[in-house]
Design a protein around this nucleic acid. Structure first.
Length: 572
DNA sequence: GCCGTTTTCGGCCCGACTGTTTTCAGTCG
């Protein structure tokens, strides 16, 4: 049985929910939630780690007890203690906590005093007006239950590209408000997480500025969830929640740090503060009620003896320890990018010509562009056979003679067939500058077969870059089952590269796998998979993801001049 | 349940807003 990390995390979260309703020590509850987050964002499969005999207690927040529980879940697919707990607390109660306004205490009261354990029973009680009778409840909560019961939020996170569009429009709106100075979207958006749950916007303004009214009256607001002097929350038409915080200018840095998160990072920083006798909150850094810092974000880090930590690193994944050792990575930036290795034209499923793509790349300041139209296996996209590829090579030669300031590279996106062979013969591949190779069919092979298939493809001497290594589409298609650790090892042994696909629907490698590739010494190509000229702008999403994976300029091959990339592409 | 240069017990981040209250608990981020 293969237990996925998401399953382990789910069991821990359910256990934490029920413990909370049971009134357990809140820190114990937190330990389970922390563990769930750690496991969910792990680069490797927990099942594999157990099988390979790795010490799980080395993971942050995992001690002896939780390590044993993970092993039990991996072995049996379930957790006996969860079943025991469910014997006296109905598991369905956890779902009630998804209702706004209902937390563990109120859910417990509903269960103990009205015998409610399901959403259906909750609905019936609300309809009969029983809920508002309970001490600690009232009409508002009963009303909210009736309104929300049909639509318990799915809680789907939105893609970064959508958040960017919504956030930019809202920032423009707020910047027009009189007296407003700084407006910044913080939260997981600023950390460039691949999806975000909500938007956190931070504003500084003059004392007499009225920001909350224009915010809650923004044209796309469908619901005001709360409104106060310094904080308000709204829901937009798109379903996303936006929180606005207004802070004084002197608190801007502390607030920016606080609202950028992650929560785990903030807790770790504040704990460091406590050890130094400091209190850190969104208003500043305090020693004995005296405010000693907080105007700039750097000051927060300084106060606990650390250098500035880039937002993308703030996940408590080791960045604080790295900062303490003076070993923070110098993260790659957009300006380091010199080209794009994965793009398409209208010759297959793209929308622009070769020349238009080249011009667009040059306009971005790139030095080279690899146009990688599909190969014959992908019939849907009119993939190239050897004859058309030979024509394409000549066409590129002609264009390169004409083009100035940009080099078009001869390339193709090859299909990795079920048996691990590539779908065009070596005789034509040897004429190319590089290849990107990808899986488009047979997504549901067994883990071992999928892994071996891809490694076999890497054995081909003309294999250069493994494109979108897991095939996942965010919120749409799960990754195919593959042992990424083995793939990364295989890539290093063969001197090939992994793509970090920058398309915002893919962002494949994940942040954790990107970090793993770096730790194992495998270099990455950040590529957009552009199907039209404007898609070349996706590069910044890829760079964001690369930064989350701790990549520096030298870890990324398309930060190099083409002459230097060529040397790297030579197989060992 | 985790964790450790105030260590193996006793801590564990911090504040805003809401609803239900007469001073605060619960929820949320």
């Amino acid at each position: 049985m293969l237990v996925h990390n998401a399953d382990v995390a789910d069991i821990f979260n359910r256990f934490a929910d029920l413990l909370e309703i049971d009134g357990a020590n809140p820190f114990r509850v937190r330990a389970y939630r922390n563990a769930a987050r750690t496991i969910a964002s792990l680069g490797q499969n927990a099942t594999d780690m157990v099988r390979k005999g790795k010490d799980l207690t080395e993971l942050p927040g995992i001690g002896k007890d939780l390590a044993q529980k993970i092993e039990e879940i991996v072995r049996t697919g379930s957790l006996s203690q969860l079943k025991e707990l469910e014997a006296h607390i109905p598991g369905q109660l956890a779902r009630l906590m998804k209702m706004p306004g209902l937390g563990p205490k109120r859910v417990r009261a509903l269960h103990e005093r009205l015998g409610i354990s399901t959403l259906e029973e909750l609905k019936m009680a609300a309809e009969k007006g029983k809920i508002s009778q309970l001490r600690g409840f009232g009409d508002k909560i009963e009303q909210m239950v009736l309104e929300e019961i049909g639509q318990v939020k799915k809680g789907e996170r939105i893609k970064l590209v959508v958040a960017e569009e919504i956030g930019n429009a809202l920032v423009d709106h707020l910047k027009k408000v009189e007296g407003v100075k700084e407006v910044e979207v913080a939260g997981s958006y600023r950390r460039r997480k691949e999806t975000v749950a909500d938007l956190d916007i931070l504003v500084t303004c003059t004392e007499d500025a009225r920001v909350m009214d224009p915010f809650v009256n923004y044209e796309n607001v469908v619901k005001v969830l709360s409104q106060g002097e310094t904080r308000s929350s709204v829901e937009l038409r798109s379903g996303i929640q936006v929180d606005l915080r207004v802070v004084a200018e002197e608190s801007y840095g502390a607030a920016l740090h606080y609202f950028t998160g992650s929560k785990a990072h903030n807790i770790a920083i504040r704990t460091l503060g406590v050890k130094k006798g400091l209190k850190i909150n969104e208003y500043g850094v305090f020693r004995n009620k005296k405010r000693i810092a907080g105007t700039r974000e750097e000051e927060v880090f300084q106060s606990v003896g650390l250098p500035f930590i880039e937002p993308e690193l703030r996940e408590n994944w080791g960045e604080i320890e790295a900062a303490q050792r003076g070993q923070l990575p110098k993260l790659i930036a957009m300006k380091d990018i010199r080209g794009d290795f994965h793009t398409h034209t209208k010759a297959t499923d793209g929308h622009n010509s070769l020349e238009e793509m080249a011009e667009a790349a040059r306009a971005l300041g790139y030095e080279y562009l690899a146009v990688t139209d599909h190969s014959q296996k992908v019939t849907m996209a009119h993939g190239f056979d050897a004859r058309r590829l030979a024509q394409r090579i000549k066409e590129i030669d002609r264009l390169n003679a004409k083009l100035k300031g940009i080099i078009l590279l001869k390339s193709i996106e090859l299909d990795i067939l079920k048996d691990g062979s590539l779908d065009l013969p070596d005789e034509i591949l040897k004429e190319l500058d590089l290849t990107v190779c990808s899986v488009h069919y047979h997504f549901n092979l067994a883990r071992k077969d999928q892994t071996e298939r891809i490694i076999r493809a890497m054995d081909n001497p003309y294999f250069s870059i493994l494109a979108h290594p897991t095939g996942r589409l965010i919120n749409q298609r799960e990754p195919y089952d593959v042992d990424m650790e083995l793939l990364i090892d295989a890539a290093r042994e063969r001197g090939v590269f992994l793509e970090l696909n920058a398309h915002p629907d893919r962002l494949d490698l994940s942040d954790a796998h990107t970090k793993m590739a770096k730790e194992k010494g495998v270099r990455v190509a950040i590529s957009t998979d552009a199907h039209r000229t404007t898609d070349l702008d996706f590069m910044h999403f890829g760079v964001g993801q690369a930064r989350r994976g701790w990549l520096e300029r030298d870890d990324v091959i398309n930060t190099r001049r083409w002459e230097d990339v060529k040397k790297l592409l030579k197989r060992k």
